[in-house]
Design a protein around this nucleic acid. Sequence first.
RNA 1: GCCCUUGUAGCUCAGUCGGUAGAGCACAUCCAUGGUAAGGAUGAGGUCAACGGUUCGAUUCCGUUCGAGGGCUCCA
Length: 578
Amino acid sequence: MSHPLETIRHSLSHVMAEAVCKLYPGTKVAIGPAIDDGFYYDFQLPVTVQPEDLPAIEKEMRRIIAANLKFERREISKAEAVALFAAQPFKLELIEGLEDGAITVYSQGEFTDLCRGPHVDTTRDLRPDCFKLRAIAGAYWRGDEKRPMLTRLYAYAFNSKDELNAHLKMLEEAEKRDNRRLGKELGLFSTHEEAGPGLIYWHPKGGRFRVELENWWRDEHYKNGYDLLFTPHIGKAWLWEKSGHLGFYKEGMYAPMEIDEEKYYVKPMNCPFHIMIYNNDGHSYRDLPLRWGELGTVYRYERAGALHGLMRVRGFTQDDAHIICTPEQIEDEIAEVLRFSLSMWKILGFKDIKAYLATRPAGDGAVGAPEMWATALESLRKAVDKEGLPYEMDEGGGAFYGPKIDLKVKDAIGREWQMTTIQFDFNEPERFDMTYVNSDGTKKRPYMVHRALLGSIERFFGVYIEHTAGAFPLWLAPEQVAVIPVGNDFADYAKTVGDQLRRAGLRVRMMLSDDRMNAKIRLAQAQKVPYMLVVGAKERDESTVSPRLRDGRQLESQAVETFIAHAKARVAEKSLEL
RNA sequence: GCCCUUGUAGCUCAGUCGGUAGAGCACAUCCAUGGUAAGGAUGAGGUCAACGGUUCGAUUCCGUUCGAGGGCUCCA
């Protein structure tokens, strides 16, 4: 009989626990749940297990599976449980938190575990070739830094060998696309631990991508009714006390610097600055909505162990904006932001997008009247419905200052990345006493919404590198065309062609070194240059070029002008195809 | 911060069971002038992460420090 994958994974974790206990007598077992791509089990081991030991554990697991053992469920009393797990301190702690009468244990072979279940019937339901031990990691007991560090063994597990292999292949592909690796290979960016980890250096090619992306971003924002701001990188302690950041976000901020005996903080967010601009003038309801965007560079403390290429950094540029509007406008504004965001993702080539609505957190830490939360959430939900976007609720997942929508986009190899975020803020308008004058002459509090569409430029770059494997669409490619003469005799003609392309506004790499043509093609391919134009005697005599595409396709020899028109059209329409 | 792994040329890595290191790519010079993924030769380049200890002698063994990679949420 077949069982849900989660059950199979969980049962496998018991098998692994049995194997580990057998191989390392004296092992204390903690917990072993199923996870997204397999399972893990946490142990306190009498010895240090090393990666070389994993095959032996796998082998023992297969032996257990082959023995065709039954998983037997028993209900026992709390007293029985305490006696049974007398030598297992972690289990005892878990038992303490359980109701008498609701305690179950599962046994297979020589191993009995405190477990709610369910499990497969016998180890025969587990396939010996559908799992693979993955890694050894440290994990705190119950995720608490103050509790003992346990050894966690991770494993992949799937329904079939094919699915396992497909997953392993995806991981292999992910490794090839790793933004740190491609960033180096394609000369896009670097980090320098000696100059400060988690800080990104954009090289000329990465810079070119960024400029093209940002230019487009600015154009789109102006077209969509935004104004753009530039604000300082530092602000006095007053600002951050007022905003509440020193109260709620201090651990994410860097230590202050002193200027004229005043403390200044580097900004972790742009919002207080935008509010300063808002509060610089009085506002009428007639002025609203205001949509103010900024590519604002912020610095946030991230723990050293959390830093990761472009994905997790300490300094980054948010594609931030704040929408300040009346309560009546909020629904349309939210719908509009969502539509705008989706239109951007479409152009960038992401089709699979899912929304996550986060509601008011439990407890009394949240600010803002419940009615405001309800209206806000309603406008978020309506917007998602209007776009026909699939969504999930994240109950209690909102920030203390307001509900939000996060969008997750799926990349070319099926991984989801959280990018766009649209968040209500009931906190700062209050703290900064933001107001506008309503039609009846009374002062009102506006709604404020923070939103970032790409998230941050750095992280987006990382995701996009991995999504495209570095083969950017023509309009974003740092180098769009490589001109490759067949031999040095044709260098002059190559230069003429290159100049012509440059004048037409294309980004050209002239490959005029002494290398052979084959080597140049190889290099241009490796650099993912979209078009390679090979020129020799024939092309020179006919004023043509012979285009090769980075996907290996070959176009007909054509007049230089024809090629320029072809490429320019694709740039103009931001085509994902060459 | 903590656990496991790890740190040798710009990059990717090999090696030394303790006698101060090697390959490929990249780079430089020279030869070769070429039709769609690497032409050839020569050369330059390293205080083997840093500091301490053991030793006649340490890049190699031991210790400490710093950095990097994976993990520390998914609740019997």
